[in-house]
């Protein structure tokens, strides 16, 4: 079975500074990969490279485009790349304000992505949006309100609904639970876990929280100074880390 995503030797330099260097991995349909590592280790840079928001200096990223097999993303036109990002992929930002349109209603935030895949019937779009608000445990009665009035946790759930409504096959998430209260985090995590399993999503999730990685991810990629230092089955890497840096990372957390 060929993978959904195949990444070979990608790198990004910022002048003399390394953003991330020589990263390779494969991701299969339905697989969740967590990227962990200290601040500045290149996690967000990697996510931006994968989602073609920034271009890689080296290597290649191939994606299984429906009906076409594995395609080198560099060979897609800009319109095709945009289409992927709007429909077949999702990108959940750490700060929901960056991933939502704050000047349109909650319902419109969800409906907009549906319209990008060709939905035109107002009533149906509204019904689907209502349905998704409920799936992420938002009060459907607030469908016409602006997200500016929502709490951080509610905004994050709205951003998730906006991303998942088109039934993407691959979702990128940058610290989806950071910056939220612990109790709000737990609820969001549960929800993510449920949605990822129910929809059979493949996901690359950047997190500094090893407990989040343990709960959501099948596999782990540990980064340090722009490079992957260890990779493997999530529970194996966390319970029996091999690399000095991973051992330090795991030991510095009380219990995961």
């Amino acid at each position: 079975m060929s993978p959904l995503l195949r990444v070979k030797g990608i790198s990004k330099r910022y002048g003399e500074h390394i953003g991330c260097a020589d990263v390779s991995f494969e991701l299969h349909a339905g697989e969740v990969l967590a990227v962990v590592g200290e601040s500045g280790s290149g996690k967000s840079t990697l996510l931006q490279l994968l989602s073609t928001r920034i271009a890689s200096d080296t290597g290649s990223i191939e994606y299984q485009v429906t009906g076409r097999g594995l395609v080198d993303l560099a060979h897609l036109s800009e319109a095709e790349q945009r289409w992927l990002l709007r429909t077949d992929w999702g990108y959940v930002e750490q700060n929901p304000r960056d991933g939502l349109r704050m000047n349109v209603s909650a319902g419109a935030n969800v409906g907009e992505r549906l319209m990008a895949v060709g939905a035109r019937h107002y009533g149906e779009i509204r019904n689907t949006a209502t349905d998704w608000l409920q799936r992420v445990e938002l009060d459907a009665a607030r469908i016409d309100e602006l997200p500016t009035g929502f709490s951080g946790g509610m905004q994050q759930r709205l951003q998730i609904a906006r991303n998942l409504v088109t039934r993407p096959r691959l979702v990128f998430m940058d610290e989806p639970t950071a910056g939220l209260d612990v109790s709000v985090q737990a609820r969001l995590l549960d929800l993510l876990r449920e949605l990822v399993t129910d929809l059979g999503l493949a996901a690359v999730i950047v997190t500094h929280d090893l407990a989040v990685a343990r709960l959501l991810a099948h596999r782990l990629l540990v980064m340090r100074q722009g490079r992957v230092v260890e990779t493997g089955l999530t529970d194996q890497v966390l319970d029996d880390p091999q690399h000095p840096y991973t051992q330090l990372l795991v030991a510095s957390v009380l219990q995961v």
């Binding site: 493997g232 089955l233 529970d235 194996q236 319970d239 029996d240 091999q242």
Partner: peptide
């Protein structure tokens, strides 16, 4: 744990 693949 080795039998479960949890330890390498």
């Amino acid at each position: 744990r080795c039998l479960y693949g949890n330890y390498l």
